[in-house]
C-alpha cells in the first residue's frame, strides 16, 4: 500500500509578465484526507498545482512533496499522480498506447495499463483512439494516468468537470477511498458545492492569495452560520430562543438562529420543553461562506488598486 506524503507550499509566487498569478502562498496538505483547493476562475489554482509538479517554475518560493521538489523525485509517477485540466492527449493514439508511453517512461509494468483502465471504467475502450473520446472519457483517462504508478499522492485539477452524475458519484467515492487508504488527495475546483461532499479540508484562494484554510466545518462556523430550527409551536420556540439570548429571524420554513452549533439550539428547546420539527445547519451556508470569502477578497483588492 502506497503511503501518503505531506505536500508543502512555502511562500510560493508566480508572475507572468505583470500579472501575479500566485501571490506568496503557503499551506500544507496532509495525507489521509481529501483537501479541496478552491477559488474562482483565474484565482491561480492551476498555476499553483503546475508549480508543485515542476511544470511551471516559481518566481520565488518552493513546493515540495515529503520535502522533495518534484523534479528531484527519484520515481515521480510512483510518488505523485497528477491530472491537470488541459486535455493532454495525442488524438491519434489509443487510450492504452497513451498510457503505455508514460508507463515505459516511468518503468512501470504494462499490466498496470489495463488495471488502471479498468479502475476508471474505460476497460472496454482501451483500443479506441482518444480523439473520439467524450470529455468525461478524457477525464477518466486523465485519472487512469494518475493511477499508473499507484502513487501515495494524488493531485487533481478540476477532475469533476465534464463528468455525468454517475461519474461525479463515482469520483466522490474514489477520492474518499484514496484518502481512507492513507493517500494525500489534493483536488481543485472553482465550486465548493462540487466537492463539499467529499473534502475534509479546504484551502481557498482568490487572486493568487490565501483567503482561508482549515477543515470544511471551520469554514461553516467562521462565516457566522445560521441554524434552521422549527417547532409545531413556533411561538414557544421564539420565546425560548429570546430567553436564551439567541438572535433569530423568521423565515418561511422556520427560524434562522444565529448560533454556531445545532446542539446548543437543541439544548435550549429541550430545557424549555419545546418540541422540534426541524433542526439543522442552513443548507446554503457553506457556499455563501465561500462566496463571501472570495468576493470579500476581490472587493478588497479592487479598492486597493484604485
Amino acid at each position: 500500500m502506497p503511503v501518503g506524503a505531506v505536500i508543502e507550499f512555502s511562500n510560493i509566487t508566480k508572475t507572468f509578465g505583470n500579472v501575479t498569478a500566485v501571490d506568496n502562498l503557503s499551506f500544507t496538505v496532509e495525507p489521509g484526507r481529501v483537501t479541496g483547493f478552491l477559488g474562482p476562475n483565474g484565482a491561480g489554482k492551476t498555476t499553483t498545482l503546475r508549480m508543485l509538479l515542476g511544470l511551471v517554475a516559481p518566481t520565488s518560493g518552493t513546493a515540495t512533496i515529503d520535502g522533495i521538489r518534484y523534479r528531484d523525485l527519484p520515481r515521480p509517477l510512483q510518488t505523485v499522480g497528477a491530472a491537470l485540466e488541459a486535455a493532454s492527449f495525442h488524438p491519434g493514439r489509443s487510450a492504452r498506447n497513451h498510457l503505455a508511453v508514460y508507463a515505459i517512461a516511468a518503468g512501470l509494468p504494462s499490466a498496470r495499463i489495463d488495471a488502471v483502465l479498468h479502475t476508471v471504467g474505460l476497460g472496454a475502450h482501451g483500443a479506441q483512439r482518444v480523439g473520439g473520446f467524450s470529455l468525461g472519457m478524457r477525464q477518466r483517462l486523465g485519472l487512469a494516468f494518475t493511477l499508473l504508478g499507484d502513487p501515495g499522492v494524488l493531485v487533481l485539477d478540476e477532475p469533476i468537470n465534464g463528468l455525468d452524475p454517475e461519474g461525479i458519484k463515482w469520483i466522490r467515492g474514489f477520492l474518499r477511498t484514496m484518502a481512507d487508504e492513507g493517500r494525500t488527495v489534493l483536488v481543485s475546483s472553482h465550486l465548493l458545492s462540487e466537492v463539499q461532499q467529499s473534502v475534509d479540508d479546504v484551502i481557498i484562494i482568490a487572486d493568487g492569495a490565501l483567503v482561508h484554510r482549515g477543515t470544511l466545518s471551520s469554514l461553516e462556523t467562521e462565516a457566522a452560520p445560521r441554524i434552521l430550527v422549527d417547532s409545531p409551536d413556533r411561538t414557544a420556540l421564539e420565546a425560548a430562543l429570546s430567553q436564551a439570548g439567541i438572535e433569530f429571524s423568521t423565515g418561511r420554513t422556520g427560524l434562522f438562529a444565529a448560533a454556531p452549533d445545532p446542539a446548543l439550539i437543541g439544548h435550549i428547546a429541550f430545557s424549555a420543553g419545546v418540541e422540534l420539527s426541524a433542526l439543522h445547519r442552513e443548507r446554503k451556508g457553506l457556499e455563501e461562506a465561500f462566496l463571501a470569502l472570495v468576493n470579500g477578497h476581490a472587493n478588497g483588492n479592487g479598492g486597493e488598486s484604485r
Binding site: L55, Y102, A105, F145
Partner: peptide, 18 residues
C-alpha cells in the same frame, strides 16, 4: 511540435522531469 500542440509535454515531463 506535436508535443506542444497536443500538450503531451505535460504527461511527458510528469513521467520524466529531466
Amino acid at each position: 511540435t506535436g508535443e506542444f500542440r497536443h500538450q503531451t509535454l505535460t504527461p511527458t515531463f510528469l513521467a520524466n522531469p529531466r
